[in-house]
Write a protein that binds this DNA or RNA. Structure first.
Lengths: 211, 211
DNA sequence: ACCCCTCTAGAACGAACGCTCTATCCAGCA
DNA sequence: TGCTGGATAGAGCGTTCGTTCTAGAGGGGT
């Protein structure tokens, strides 16, 4: 299994030819990414620590070295990783058009495209991980709530910049994120981009109605 | 543990004073209800067959007698149960107001009230069960897709009856269900009714914009 | 009286779970 | 050169998992 000797900072691996797309990253980062991807697809309970360590090309010892809090701490970090990932995509989409309604439409299309590209496997990285653990693990629920809040904040700021009233922007941000969330869920289960495309059009229409 | 001797039809239990709200029901029905409730709160992987049988006051033998397909068959049936349950609530709400926009607003309020009443434990009965099992269990995914389709159908018919164009009704039904779904998810994680109440208002506004 | 069939009952199986533990490796420093 | 501490390595703990299996309970039909 031998991995790169490393000290938490990403460095090139000059001795390991075959590896996944995460090769050359620090062990800790590889573990977080593997956890995020696996929990996104299989949920918290459906993903084992040993599977994560295997997928990350790390050993069980490394996992517990970096995450002494065990599975829950790892899941919290995985959610934060998914949070940052989706926030980046959302920010890009929102800045891609001068008009906020068109920007939201573009965001929905982007989500749909990525979902299809993953063969309907990669839904919302936060939902799958946090669902079913809300009651037991408050830390996980909190991280998920913060993710949603951050995404809402991005939409909110975008609407404010476009001249929307503060209250309208706040409420629209709620519905934009929630509708995208629900539509992605349905799209994943139905294996169809349509729910997301419809959601994009309806959200654009809703936003326009506040002008 | 002794349970009611019964032949699949619900009958009164004259000998068992202390029991849950499902007492007096047939064993099979008790098992389905326990599975549905537990999976709604803990997800598919987070819920064990033994926990279900314990909660249902049934034995492992009974579970495998009624559901020889094992956990997957049981989960499929649990989703169908949640489907019928939510469909009933949705139908009631949709028929509670003469105006379809107001009816959707009422539905959102009802979902919010029930979610809060359960101490934020009972989210969508279909989502939690089906998430994380989409790839592995096609039967479960299919049952979930059918549930969403049924709910959409209820909204669709309601809009048609109110005179909306077929295409508008179809697309609005998509977004109504998806937005409620996403808002309920956010409401559960944030422990706040607000996302659902905002969703209700926005959906009413969106529907009105098609008149 | 007998059988039959549905349903209940729970012990037992191998596998996988999260986690603990000790041992080893190795770069950096004294 | 030897020490130190972060990082790696994986055997093994007790528990729980989904499932299988055999045994018995009990009412109806003949």
């Amino acid at each position: 299994m031998k991995t790169t000797p490393e000290h938490d900072s990403p460095e090139q691996d000059h001795d390991e030819p075959a590896a996944g797309p995460d090769a050359g990253l620090g062990t800790r980062e590889r573990i977080v990414r593997a956890a995020s991807r696996l929990m996104q697809r299989q949920g918290y309970e459906g993903t084992g620590i040993k599977q994560i360590s295997r997928e990350a090309n790390a050993t069980l010892g490394s996992v517990y070295h970096f995450f002494p809090g065990g599975k829950q701490e790892l899941a919290t970090e995985a959610i934060r990783h998914g949070d940052r990932e989706f926030a980046g995509m959302l920010r890009t989409a929102l800045e891609s058009r001068p008009d906020p309604a068109e920007a939201v439409l573009a965001a929905a299309g982007l989500v749909a495209a990525e979902l299809r590209a993953s063969d309907w496997l990669d839904g919302c990285p936060v939902t799958a991980t946090s669902l079913g653990t809300a009651a037991n693990a408050p830390g996980i629920r909190l991280a998920a709530a913060e993710a949603f809040e951050r995404w809402r904040g991005l939409v909110h700021d975008r609407l404010l910049a476009a001249g929307f009233a503060a209250q309208d922007a706040r409420e629209l941000a709620h519905t934009v994120i929630n509708t995208l969330e629900g539509a992605e869920l349905t799209a994943q289960i139905a294996r169809s981009e349509e729910p997301l495309l419809i959601a994009g059009r309806h959200l654009a229409r809703l936003i326009d109605s506040y002008r």
